[in-house]
Write a protein that binds this DNA or RNA. Structure first.
Length: 432
DNA sequence: TCTGGGGTCCTAGGACCC
DNA sequence: TCTGGGGTCCTAGGACCC
């Protein structure tokens, strides 16, 4: 038995904790570059703002309907997330943190009324952290996710589902008849693992609701679609196929990619950006004690512009596995040289570290540069320490350019709120 | 003027091998 | 007329997730 604890409109809820005046009004949180809406309050959803809606298309709602837009403040959200997760863990014996606002909790061996217990945890999170959340309970992770969706929808849209399911919904405690009628009222695209493409295909075959989907034979699903969808259907039928991940697996790839604040035309500007991305990626890699064997770099124009399009990536193998910023940046820059074409307005670039391994797995080879490698690794540790202590970018590669107006590629972020919980300067001040 | 970032898994197809 | 079969590895791309 699993529970899924999921913060409501998480980023917006984080902002509201520190600005209660945002309560009750339409609020969106914008992606980098203030590009599009990545979180919406219920009031914003009611205005018809879609997930991912570009800001310039909904801007007029600020005047028309009092919509408030904020730049994303991921430092704040990450910290609020930690607080929420530690309370959610109390629901059961094991927890898997699935995303910044969601965690699965294993409920087996928990006695007593699960719904009552979930309500208690929910109010504790609301009271101690300030984040409203919903809890879904089911015999598989996919059913717990679905239950969570039902709990949220029942709360947000009265009349959509029976009102006693709002906030906490336990699918496992329902009669078959009640479950059936709820599945019949739920569209296939609400299921975890069924996205736009697959739901379109299912609907074309007359499969509209969860009730329709659950009746299908897994073998048919597999031959018509894939093993992935087959697993999803089995999970909906109550057969667990996806286990709780107990210890977070190390990442298999690490990426740093950004859209630019404005179009970039020159190679040397791309090189600055790519150096910066490579440094950030290498830093993440060292944080998980990993080494990379390959470095991928890509550049592309904006698919939304009518301009000539260009998009290319290239993978450069490293001579030996490495987590060294200079070594990774060099590989990325070598790749960039080879794929760059002049005459395009570049909108985005990225660096990905692939084929990762743990630093302990390094092959023992006869190596005349052994000592200098040790020195490099000490230097990297010092670099990370200084950047951690004095702020990101205190020390960086010379080719990454300097902060400020010279970096034409840096992103726009004009609506960020203070880092209330992670920066002393931004600590809220209580006034008497 | 203006459209995010970071992941995972699976599949198809090509190259290569015996 | 007619051109094997099976395996592995790699890459690109699709689909999904939040």
């Amino acid at each position: 038995m699993y529970a899924l604890v999921d913060g409501n409109n998480f980023y917006v809820s984080c902002e509201r904790v520190f600005r209660p005046s945002l309560e009750g009004i339409p609020v969106v949180v914008l992606s980098n570059n203030d590009g599009c809406a990545i979180a919406r309050s219920n009031e914003a959803k009611a205005l018809g703002i879609a997930m991912g809606a570009p800001w310039f298309q909904i801007k007029h709602l600020a005047e028309q309907s009092g919509l408030v837009a904020l730049s994303a403040n991921f430092e704040l959200y990450g910290d609020m997330s930690d607080r929420m997760m530690s309370l959610a863990a109390g629901l059961g014996h094991a927890q898997e943190i699935y995303s910044i606002d969601e965690s699965f909790v294993e409920l087996s061996g928990i006695r007593g009324d699960l719904v009552e217990r979930a309500h208690k945890v929910r109010s504790r999170i609301l009271q101690w952290v300030g984040i409203p959340c919903c809890v879904g309970i089911g015999s598989t992770k996919t059913l717990a996710k679905l239950a969570n969706h039902i709990g949220k929808t029942a709360e947000r849209k009265p009349g959509s589902y029976p009102s006693h399911l709002a906030q906490v919904c336990n699918l496992a405690a329902m009669s078959p008849e009640e479950r059936d009628s709820i599945f019949a009222a739920t569209a296939v695209q609400e299921v975890w693992g069924v996205g736009r493409q697959i739901s379109k295909q299912l609907q074309a075959g007359g499969i509209q609701t969860v009730k329709d989907l659950i009746r299908l034979d897994p073998a048919t699903i597999r031959s018509h679609w894939s093993v992935v969808l087959e697993r999803t259907v089995r999970e909906l039928q109550g057969t667990p196929c996806i286990d709780l991940e107990h210890n977070p697996a190390p990442k298999k790839e690490i990426a740093t990619t950004r859209s630019f604040g404005r179009p970039v035309l020159e190679l040397h500007q791309l090189a600055e950006a790519v150096t910066d991305f490579a440094s950030r990626a290498a830093e993440k890699l060292r944080k998980q004690s990993g080494m990379a064997n390959q470095v991928l770099v890509y550049i592309r124009t904006s698919p939304f512009r009518p301009d000539p399009q260009y998009s290319r990536s290239i993978t450069t193998p490293l001579r030996r596995p490495s987590a060294d910023t200079a070594c990774i940046a060099k590989a990325a820059l070598d790749g960039l040289q080879r794929i760059f074409q002049p005459g395009f307005k570049y909108a985005k670039a990225g660096v990905m570290l692939l084929d990762l391994q743990h630093e302990g797995q390094q092959q023992c080879e006869l190596d005349l540069e052994g000592d200098s490698q040790k020195d490099r690794s000490t230097l990297m540790t010092a670099l990370d320490g200084l950047n951690q202590r004095y702020g990101k970018g205190t020390l960086h590669m010379a080719s990454a350019g300097v902060e400020g107006s010279k970096r034409v590629w840096s992103m726009k972020q004009e609506r960020r709120t203070p880092r209330y919980t992670t920066s002393w300067e931004d600590l809220p001040v209580a006034k008497a």
